[in-house]
């Protein structure tokens, strides 16, 4: 990281750095991870900074919250180019590119109001199967409705 960027955000001690997020999508990424900012742990956001790979990109740093690989892979839904760095005691202990999971459970609300998963009084969670990664296309396992990126963003309340 260049010294210019360090002026914007300092290194974190323990946590996660999600880099190479397509520019303007950092807020969606946080929403997707269920982070509202009211939880109390430190979060840093950098938006629309220069990137050699992407032209411009966003970066999200989250300190003091453990995120599983499965949780982090969900980031691929809205930021397929993202890379994740797991930080322990200022060192990167692992680094990986996010991959869209095969099945997404509970996170996204089906846009079909007549889908059984939208019944609040039933013990049911939404479940989607990924049928295409680029462009992103997921299908509700219960009602078969196709969802694309903009539907996912709407469901997360960020479009």
């Amino acid at each position: 990281m260049s010294s210019k960027k360090e002026l914007i955000i300092s290194k974190i001690r323990d946590g996660v750095v999600i880099d190479h997020i397509p520019a303007g999508r950092a807020l969606v990424v946080l929403r997707l991870l269920g982070i509202s900012g009211r939880e109390g742990f430190r979060v840093a956001l950098v938006m629309n900074v220069e990137s050699r790979k992407l032209g411009t990109k966003d970066i999200v740093k989250i300190e003091g919250r453990e995120l599983t690989k499965d949780e982090l892979n969900l980031v691929a839904l809205v930021a397929p180019t993202a890379t994740v760095n797991i930080i322990r005691d200022y060192d990167v202990i692992s680094k990986f590119k996010v991959v869209v999971p095969e099945v997404i459970e509970g996170l996204i609300k089906c846009k079909n109001p007549r889908c059984i998963t939208n019944q609040q009084r039933e013990p049911i969670r939404s479940r989607f199967r990924v049928v295409s990664r680029d462009p992103l296309k997921i299908v509700c396992e219960y009602c078969g409705t196709i969802h694309e990126l903009n539907d996912i963003e709407k469901s997360l309340g960020v479009s």
Partner: peptide, 8 residues
């Protein structure tokens, strides 16, 4: 009447 009810 709801889609997916039978699967559920």
């Amino acid at each position: 009447s709801l889609e997916g009810a039978a699967k559920f």
